[in-house]
C-alpha cells in the first residue's frame, strides 16, 4: 500500500511541479565542546528496506536553533534539568526517601534512558521512563504519582535523558517486548483521521520536504523531551504524538495509553544508533 502511495506521490510531484526540498544540514553536534553526539548513522536493521540513514531532528533545524543546543548554558531546557536535579535530591513521600537515596547521584543513571521504553519482567509490561518514575514514586517513596506530561515529570525525564547524552539509543525490539513493538509498528503505518495520514506519510515518505516553512524531519524521538521555541517549554513524547494525531484530524489517544506506549517503543527503535540528545532545542 505504501509503494502505491509512493508512486502516486511521484506522479503528483511531476503534475504540480517541483516540491521544495532541502537536505538535512551538514553539521556535527559537539556538546559543550566535549561530547560528540551521533546525529546521523546507518539505519537499524529493521528499517534497512525503507531507508539507509537515520537523522536526528537536530539536522533539520536552522543554524541558530542548532547552536542553541550545543551549549548547556545556551540550552533553555537545561534550566529545567537543574530544577529536576533539586527534586532528585529532595526527600518526599511516606518512606522519607529522595530519588538519590536509592539511585545515588543523577549521573549514576547514565545509560538508563537509552534503553527505554523496555520490558519490565516483574510488572509483565513494557514501560516508558515516565511509568517507571511513577512506579518508584508510588511504591518505593510512598509519594504521589506525577501527571504523565506534567511539569515535574517532563523535567525529570529531561534530567534522566541529559545524563545519557552521547550514548546510543538501544531499545530492544525482540523478546517479550516484541508484540508491543509490532503493535507500535502497525500504528506507525496506519492512516488515520480526516486527512487519512499515517506517521510514515510524513516522516518516512517525505522527510526533507518543506511543509510550509517547516523542514520535515524523520520524526525521531532520540532527542526528547524537547524545549520548543514555539511554546518555550519542555515537551514530552506523548504530547507530541497527541499533537501529530490531532493534526491528521483524528481522535487522539491519551498520554500514557497502551497505543502511545507501543508507538513510543517502535519510534524509539527507528532511532537505534542515534545518540540520546534530550533535552533538545527545536522550533
Amino acid at each position: 500500500m505504501m509503494k502505491l502511495a509512493g508512486v502516486a506521490g511521484i506522479f503528483l510531484v511531476g503534475f504540480f511541479g517541483a516540491v521544495a526540498y532541502a537536505d538535512p544540514a551538514e553539521d556535527t553536534l559537539i556538546l559543550n565542546e566535549d561530547i560528540k553526539m551521533v546525529t546521523k548513522t546507518a539505519a537499524p536493521a529493521h528499517l534497512s528496506d525503507v531507508m539507509d540513514e537515520v537523522y536526528s531532528g537536530w539536522l533539520f533545524r536552522g543554524t541558530e536553533t542548532r547552536a542553541m543546543q550545543a551549549d548547556d548554558f545556551d540550552n533553555p531546557g537545561m534550566l529545567f534539568v537543574e530544577q529536576a536535579e533539586g527534586v532528585w535530591n529532595t526527600v518526599e513521600g511516606s518512606e522519607d526517601k529522595s530519588c538519590a537515596s536509592c539511585h545515588g547521584a543523577s549521573e549514576e543513571m547514565a545509560g538508563v534512558k537509552a534503553v527505554y521504553p523496555k520490558w519490565n519482567e516483574t510488572a509483565g509490561e513494557v514501560r516508558t521512563i515516565e511509568m517507571q518514575v511513577n512506579d518508584c514514586r508510588e511504591n518505593q517513596m510512598g509519594a504521589e504519582k506525577w501527571g504523565y506530561t506534567s511539569g515535574n515529570m517532563v523535567n525529570m525525564t529531561a534530567l534522566l535523558a541529559s545524563v545519557s547524552r552521547g550514548m546510543p539509543v538501544n531499545v530492544a525490539i525482540d523478546g517479550p517486548a516484541q508484540s508491543v513493538w509490532e503493535d507500535g509498528k502497525e500504528l506507525y503505518y496506519t492512516r488515520t483521521g480526516q486527512l487519512e495520514m499515517s506517521c510514515a506519510n510524513c516522516h518516512e515518505d517525505n522527510y526533507g520536504s518543506m511543509i510550509r516553512a517547516d523542514h520535515l524531519s524523520q520524526g525521531q524521538i532520540n532527542a526528547f523531551p524537547v524545549y520548543r521555541l514555539k511554546n518555550t517549554k519542555l515537551n514530552a513524547v506523548h504530547s507530541r504524538f497527541k499533537g501529530c494525531v490531532r493534526d491528521t484530524r483524528a481522535e487522539t489517544y491519551s498520554a500514557g495509553s497502551p497505543e502511545f506506549i507501543a508507538l513510543e517503543l517502535y519510534v524509539s527503535s527507528r532511532g537505534n544508533g542515534l545518540s540520546v540528545e534530550g533535552p533538545s532545542v527545536r522550533n
Partner: peptide, 18 residues
C-alpha cells in the same frame, strides 16, 4: 482522495507566509 492529500502537502510546501 489521494490527489487531495498529496496536493495539500505539495502545494503547502515551501510557501513562506510573509
Amino acid at each position: 482522495m489521494e490527489l487531495t492529500r498529496r496536493s495539500v502537502l505539495q502545494l503547502g510546501a515551501g510557501i513562506l507566509v510573509v
